[in-house]
Design a binder for these strands. Structure first.
Lengths: 332, 332
DNA sequence: CTGAAAGCGCTTACAG
DNA sequence: CTGAAAGCGCTTACAG
């Protein structure tokens, strides 16, 4: 809580010299350096820590990475965030995390906070398409993750080949597992990442001449419970379900279990995302894997290592893969 | 990215006046106020956001709450954090979250960062007892959560009656469910919160003259898998398991399931914590509920509403309760 | 009501 | 090598 001036006084040198030894930013004679070190040791009991606000003000940069996520309770974003945090630490950066509850106004406020805090760049995972208006004139580097907006005024987009994921999932259900009545529980269709999943499913159905059957559902546990019940009424002959989100798949499983419908014997189930949870639960969930870790590293590096940062909306599309676990079983 | 001076120039007033309208901190004539507002609108395209570092430097406080947690991947802390975030927002505060991977050095660094960032107080969830040395001379308000250290140089401790929880859990298994061979999977015994759970179990066993059977395990999914296997070898006659952590209970269930041991018919299972996950999984976990939300609110309020903050290590011990769900069944 | 001034704590040209 | 000075962008006494 004390300042560099007190250290300077104790060491009988100037504040500038103290600053130089703290930062190693210029040569300091061995003698003075030692005096400063001693003074800091002496003061350590009462604690001297350089004031970050003052440093940031001077530098005009805070050595922090901003991360904005829709929900800190959603394991997908939390896994993502922990990697960003790790990479940031490796580069001696800090992480400024903002949780916006999927709310557009909060998301805007978070963006403002990032500017106010002079972060070096922001990684934005959004579910609000309209945020792109703010992005178009955003003064800092931004990389958008897990979304594809229509502005190209960002440094990059990082997402997966969701369309392919949708196809992989139905294909597995249809070809490998022999399902004949596959229902797709699709997420909010105004969001690109949800739409692409569904379209993958749809086009596969079209191509293979199998009926397209869908149900709409938010990415939310409770909503999943309700929609699964409706699904069973609407499509009583269903034998395969593609839930476009792992959390929803988990609620689907619960409903099926409680109705004594056996998985995968009677109904086969595929999720989407491969969040950590998918392999913790029992039975383990067959799902479409997104390489969360690689995506997070790419996002962090794009900001940390890109200079000058160019805003031309480059897309980095990662591959997805099918992970067969226990909620589906191959045709015997 | 521009400064208050540019706004002032545009509005043809002094920077002080701009500051006053932004903050509403003093009377400004309607005319000038309007000029400032107009100037800010005009500049909005290019964005003017008051620099937080400068404000913080002047104020000598940042209107933020620091939160240090062992892991951002652990849903317990994440649920806790989301409540803190919510309360902070209500008070127009920000949240500065530090993830330390349970590592003592990182935890120390996080504490330093809190001082450097002049937060208004820190909420610390720790698993490192030795952090208490740092706490003893920490210059900011601190409330320690989910731990009980031996220093009283903190503003408060917030935790639960874990001992009671341990008792409640065995009692349920023994009395309600009729288990005769109850094994306790206990957490790291150097940590108070883990020790108290075990002691509750142990004392109940002693009192009721039933055998005390334990196995040691870190609070970790993989460790839970391994320890459950060992447990079954060591106590083949087990018919009730008390896992002192929900995540461990979830891995225990998985092992049991894979060995075709039916839960709760053959072995009954109780977890501890009641993280959100416990009721998402199927079957739902019987567990000991900690009032996470209330604890988080209490922690945030202790810092936000306590003044002057007194460091006398007051303890706020919250009640736990048994939540019977699907992994145990009452004696018929 | 309003502006000029001083200062929050740090860091780096700039002299010497 | 080292210190005095200026300045990062803001805010609030202090005059007027």
């Amino acid at each position: 809580m004390r300042s560099i001036r007190e250290v300077a006084r104790l060491a009988d040198v100037s504040p500038a010299t103290v600053s130089r030894v703290i930062n190693g930013s210029a040569k300091v004679s061995e003698e003075k350096r030692q005096r400063v070190l001693d003074a800091m040791d002496a003061i350590e009991k009462t604690d001297f820590v350089p004031n970050e606000a003052a440093r940031t003000l001077f530098r005009r940069t805070s050595k922090t990475l901003g991360l904005i996520i829709p929900s800190i309770r959603n394991p997908f974003f939390t896994q993502f965030g922990s990697i960003i945090d790790e990479v940031a630490k490796q580069h001696d950066y800090r992480l400024l995390l903002c949780n916006v509850d999927g709310d557009l106004e909060q998301e805007r406020a978070a963006l403002q906070r990032m500017v106010a805090s002079t972060v070096d760049g922001v990684i934005l995972a959004t579910t609000n398409d309209s945020i792109q208006e703010d992005l178009a004139q955003f003064p800092l580097p931004v990389v958008v993750v897990d979304a594809r907006l229509s502005t190209d005024k960002v440094n990059g987009y990082i997402y997966c080949n969701y369309y392919k994921g949708g196809q992989l999932a139905v294909r597995h259900l249809h070809e490998d597992c022999g399902c004949r009545n596959i229902v797709c529980i699709r997420g909010p269709q105004h969001i690109y990442t949800a739409r692409a999943r569904y379209e993958g499913y749809r086009d596969y159905c079209l191509e293979h001449n199998i009926p397209e059957q869908t149900v709409d559902c938010d990415y939310d546990f409770r909503a999943g419970i309700d929609m699964t019940r409706q699904l069973l009424e609407r499509y009583p002959q269903v034998d395969g379900i593609l839930a476009c989100d792992d959390i929803v798949a988990i609620s689907t499983y619960k409903v099926l279990y409680n109705m004594n419908i056996r998985v995968p014997q009677q109904i086969q189930l595929v999720g989407f995302d491969d969040i950590g949870l998918s392999s913790l639960i029992t039975p383990e969930l067959t799902t479409i894997h997104q390489p969360i870790e690689e995506m997070a590293r790419a996002a962090a590096q794009m900001i940390l290592e890109q200079n000058p940062p160019e805003k031309k909306g480059e897309c980095f599309i990662f591959p997805v893969s099918l992970v067969v676990r226990e909620t589906t079983s191959r045709k015997r």
